[in-house]
């Protein structure tokens, strides 16, 4: 096994599980669309609330995507093969996260212009929202993957993953929505983006190693 053959296999598996990825994206769109219908469709309400709506939907979609990240590998024994491959397990986990992030977040970003129009988000807010998604969503994956590995051997682990990792998502949601609101109010937001970047970088350093320890504990 090599790192490149592993990455190719991850993309192939994600392609075969495209229904799961599609479900997460569909869920994201449904949540965003239901807000204006269910609460208030006026631009005065939607424009300031847009960042919060998009981020809540994003968090839920990412939770759906990360929950089962190791389930299939655990049950078919391929997770065990990663542990004994002689390759760096943290690096393999990092590649797995990258593949998952690209598959889930890129389509989500592609849908953003349309959804932003629907939520009456001004163009300045749109670009900041896109930046918060680019900078903030990696941390959601890095944090989520630890919860996913912790619950890999539990049959109904989805709720447990949510309970475990949702508190760690709150700072990301808060900084992201504050950044968009600051940009809409004409205030500086670079500090908030820097905080998001710092959270992502910190979780990038910690998460693959922690997840590797948890995966090793799970397979034995």
């Amino acid at each position: 096994m090599t790192y490149s053959s592993f990455l190719v296999s991850e993309f192939l598996v994600l392609w075969r599980r495209k229904q799961d990825v599609f479900n997460a994206l569909l869920f994201f769109v449904i949540v965003v669309v239901l807000f204006p219908i269910g609460i208030n469709s006026s631009p005065e309400f939607l424009a300031p609330a847009a960042a919060g709506i998009v981020w809540c939907a994003t968090v839920l979609a990412i939770l759906m995507a990360v929950e089962g990240m190791f389930k299939e590998d655990y049950h078919d024994g391929s997770l065990e093969q990663l542990v004994v491959s002689g390759l760096s397990l943290p690096l393999l986990i990092l590649l797995k996260i990258v593949a998952q992030w690209l598959t889930v977040v890129l389509p989500l970003l592609l849908m953003m212009p349309l959804l932003s129009e629907m939520l009456y988000l001004p163009s300045s807010g749109f670009w900041v929202l896109t930046m918060t998604l680019l900078v903030g969503t990696p941390s959601l994956f890095f944090i989520g993957v630890i919860g996913s590995a912790l619950t890999v051997s539990i049959k109904q682990g989805a709720m447990l993953v949510m309970l475990l990792i949702l508190p760690f998502y709150l700072p990301v949601i808060i900084f992201s929505t504050l950044a968009v609101k600051a940009s809409q109010a004409g205030l500086p937001y670079s500090g908030l983006l820097a905080m998001l970047l710092a959270i992502s970088l910190l979780s990038l350093v910690i998460s693959p190693f922690m997840t590797a320890i948890v995966v090793k504990a799970s397979v034995n």
């Binding site: 096994m1 090599t2 490149s4 053959s5 592993f6 190719v8 296999s9 192939l12 598996v13 075969r16 599980r17 299939e72 590998d73 049950h75 078919d76 024994g77 391929s78 065990e80 093969q81 004994v84 002689g86």
Partner: peptide, 25 residues
Amino acid sequence: AIYLGHSAGVKSLLTVAENLHWYCP
């Protein structure tokens, strides 16, 4: 070393050829 445990250790969502390319590229 090759370790083959109780589980087959092959990815169920890959084809036979893809599994072998994954393990022995």
